[in-house]
Computed example of a mutant assay.
Amino acid sequence: MPQPVSWKRRLKNFLFIDLKTVAGEPSLLSVDPRLQRQWEEKSRYFKHDDELSPAGWYDRRASFFAEFGKIICIGVGGLFFDDDDKPHLKVKLLSNDDEVPLLTEFLAIVDRYPPGELTLCAHNGKEFDFPYLCRRLMANGLPLPPALQISGKKPWDIPHRDTLEYWQFGDKRHFVPLDLLAAVLNVPTRPLEWTGDRTSEVYYREHDWPRIEKYARDSMVMLVQVYLKMVGAPLVADEHIVMSD
């Protein structure tokens, strides 16, 4: 197993992120008519055991698509080490009903890192979190930071890490939720309360921010611990996990 001092160096300028997304509107009836027509066309190609109307599909799946969804919470996490080289994790949750100030706050965090030196890490980040962030930044007229200027780049020119990609071992069809991966790897974290497709329901029907933020915090901790387990680094002790204001 690598020595802790080597992990201190390898995890410098390393930021874990996790998005919580919801449908852009409470229901399909609230969506701009132009986008409604686009959703109705798109939903015709969805395949599932349940036969749902376009409105039903919107409630269930619009949050997965940046063209029809929005980000309500971004978890960010960074590792640091004490004098005994024990890892500590600092987690910050950015949450807002209004996506523009939320994304602006995220950009302010990213801008603290030297240009070209930031590495992001997420679960399914290369197919979801990173492109979703880019699309929502562009849709809101916000600039793409250097770390997210990834369009058109070759895979080996993008430094970001993806725990799902590690687990796939080249099998791009194989999807494993983060919660299942933590269980398979025997990572001692709390099971997540729900899966991402239920976030819209909790947000629009209950608007329960404490519950959403607890879900986001648990996801962030699980992501970090899974990554550390996969690369053979020591896990973070519970007492060394800090929530940042």
Rank of each mutant, 00 (worst) to 15 (best):
204 Y>R: 07
148 L>W: 11
137 L>K: 03
124 N>E: 14
134 C>G: 15
148 L>A: 15
180 L>V: 12
64 F>V: 01
186 N>M: 11
159 P>L: 12
59 D>S: 11
156 W>G: 05
165 E>N: 03
101 P>Y: 10
60 R>D: 11
96 N>A: 11
56 G>V: 04
169 F>C: 09
168 Q>T: 02
86 K>Y: 08
58 Y>L: 00
201 E>F: 08
59 D>F: 01
47 K>V: 10
19 L>A: 03
98 D>K: 15
167 W>N: 10
89 L>G: 03
67 E>N: 09
37 R>Q: 14
222 M>K: 15
221 V>I: 13
201 E>C: 03
146 P>F: 06
241 I>E: 01
120 L>S: 00
221 V>N: 00
150 I>M: 15
6 S>V: 08
84 D>I: 06
58 Y>S: 08
102 L>Y: 11
51 E>I: 07
187 V>M: 14
6 S>E: 14
116 G>I: 03
181 L>G: 14
201 E>V: 08
103 L>E: 10
142 L>S: 15
33 P>F: 06
124 N>P: 12
45 Y>V: 02
116 G>A: 03
85 D>F: 02
47 K>N: 08
70 K>M: 11
153 K>M: 13
190 R>H: 11
1 M>C: 05
144 L>H: 04
1 M>V: 09
145 P>K: 06
86 K>P: 02
74 I>Q: 09
123 H>L: 01
194 W>N: 07
79 L>S: 02
22 V>S: 04
27 S>F: 00
168 Q>N: 05
171 D>F: 07
166 Y>E: 02
234 P>T: 06
154 K>M: 12
39 W>E: 08
139 A>V: 09
15 L>R: 03
4 P>A: 13
184 V>E: 09
155 P>Y: 11
23 A>V: 05
16 F>A: 13
106 F>D: 01
129 D>T: 09
116 G>W: 09
112 R>M: 11
108 A>G: 09
139 A>C: 01
196 G>D: 11
195 T>K: 08
185 L>G: 02
68 F>E: 10
61 R>V: 02
164 L>D: 02
57 W>H: 14
85 D>A: 12
185 L>I: 03
66 A>C: 10
209 W>C: 06
50 D>I: 04
78 G>C: 01
168 Q>D: 02
225 Q>K: 14
172 K>Q: 10
209 W>G: 06
80 F>T: 12
21 T>F: 13
198 R>D: 10
56 G>K: 00
151 S>I: 15
182 A>K: 07
219 S>R: 13
212 I>H: 07
224 V>P: 00
134 C>L: 09
205 R>Y: 09
233 A>G: 02
210 P>V: 04
108 A>P: 01
75 G>E: 00
191 P>D: 01
122 A>I: 04
45 Y>N: 08
56 G>P: 14
171 D>I: 08
28 L>P: 12
96 N>Q: 12
242 V>T: 07
139 A>F: 10
94 L>W: 05
30 S>A: 15
127 E>P: 07
200 S>D: 05
22 V>F: 05
213 E>C: 04
131 P>W: 00
62 A>N: 01
11 L>Q: 06
184 V>S: 14
166 Y>N: 03
39 W>D: 08
170 G>L: 11
120 L>Y: 04
165 E>M: 11
161 R>A: 00
86 K>R: 13
42 K>L: 13
12 K>H: 04
